[in-house]
């Protein structure tokens, strides 16, 4: 029996402390715009976490999680505006809708495995944009739709004006993300989480030990899609506008890349993946500011493209650290 103390390593504790301080300080240092951007980055952890649950714990490669982010965002917008639901209910149902969509993808995943599943989910990512244009009453068609309802600070929230509402949304998103991380950590360390990993490592053996493959795979995919859907729902909270052009196939691939670069099979990895993505984007911005370096400058400009850096990062990390950034300081637990 592993004691609880040993489950949270010293590295993790240090990391959690640093993150907590950063999260607490951010709202005091920024404007409404950059606070919104910070919130969006924090929210994107959920999508990466979703991939991590499906791929890192469930062993099902998903290249299409941008789709579930999109479903979550569109559904939340629909519930809160067209059905005039309260925000909390709309967010919950939005995530649940994405979860149900994920369950439907999970059903073929019973037979379609490994590289073939990667193929099908990539196809899903590519088909999503044209498909969503076919339902303009929900998705706003080509140009997207703005959401009338606003997620504003209630009366008891200290301060007023735009900044107070921004801080309120920020705190709300941070709370939800922390809750989701904690819940996922509990799920993957539960009996069900062990059956997920058993499935990943050897599904025949898992079946022999009495794990119901059908329900385990479908549930895993539903949870993972639900997390991505929650990310989409919170995006609507932050920016009341949804549009199909926010969900190109490349976005799904970058989400996947973030999950792998951060480290599959650890909750930490998802946070690290997003931190890495942010650092890379900021560094790219800074470097792209220099002019007059000729072809070398051109190359540095590429660093501004997070897709390029993550593509390269995927390749390099696969060679050097198969367990991702989260696995660097650690003995290779996952390496087979």
């Amino acid at each position: 029996m592993i004691s609880v103390e040993r489950r949270v390593s010293r590295m993790s504790a240090f990391g959690i402390a640093v993150l907590c301080v950063a999260l607490a300080v951010i709202p005091f240092l920024t404007t409404t715009t950059s606070l919104r951007q910070a919130s969006q980055i924090i929210v994107s952890v959920l999508a990466v976490l979703g991939v991590n649950v499906a791929t890192g714990y469930g062993g099902m490669i998903s290249l299409g999680h941008g789709v579930f982010v999109g479903v979550g965002a569109f559904a939340t917008g629909y519930y809160v505006d067209d059905l005039s639901m309260p925000w909390l209910l709309a967010i919950t149902l939005g995530a649940a809708t994405a979860g149900i969509a994920g369950a439907f993808v999970g059903i073929p995943a019973l037979r379609i495995k490994g590289i073939h599943l990667a193929l099908v989910t990539l196809g899903l990512a590519i088909v999503f944009r044209p498909l969503s244009k076919r339902f303009p009453s929900i998705t706003g068609g080509v140009s997207g739709r703005s959401i009338e309802a606003r997620f504003d600070a209630p009366g008891w929230w200290p301060g007023d004006g735009r900044m107070a509402s921004s801080v309120y949304r920020y705190v709300f998103c941070v709370l939800i993300v922390v809750l989701a991380l904690w819940a996922t950590w509990n799920v993957v360390n539960s009996r069900f989480g062990r059956s997920m990993r058993a499935l990943r490592d050897n599904d025949t053996a898992a079946a022999v030990y009495g794990i119901d493959l059908v329900s385990a795979r479908v549930t895993t995919f539903a949870i993972s899609a639900g997390l991505a859907g929650l990310c989409g729902a919170l995006q609507v909270v932050l920016v009341p506008f949804v549009s199909q052009d926010k969900f190109p196939a490349q976005e799904s691939l970058v989400i996947y890349a973030s999950a792998v670069v951060g480290g599959l099979g650890t909750i930490w990895g998802s946070v690290l993946g997003v931190v890495a993505r942010t650092v890379v984007a900021k560094a790219g911005d800074a470097v792209a500011g220099f002019d007059g370096l000729g072809p070398i400058g051109e190359f540095f400009d590429l660093l501004d493209e997070s897709a390029f850096v993550f593509g390269l990062g995927l390749i390099v990390l696969t060679f050097l650290f198969p367990t991702g950034l989260a696995g660097i300081g650690r003995k290779d637990r996952l390496r087979k």
Binding site: I61, L63, V254, F308, L314, L317, T318
Partner: peptide
Amino acid sequence: PLGGASDLALVNITIGLLLAVNSLMAQ
């Protein structure tokens, strides 16, 4: 160099290549 690596590693390499080449061309 990867040898007979897992599906996951091969997917990662080809997806990484896809992303990198795509943004290289865009740039």
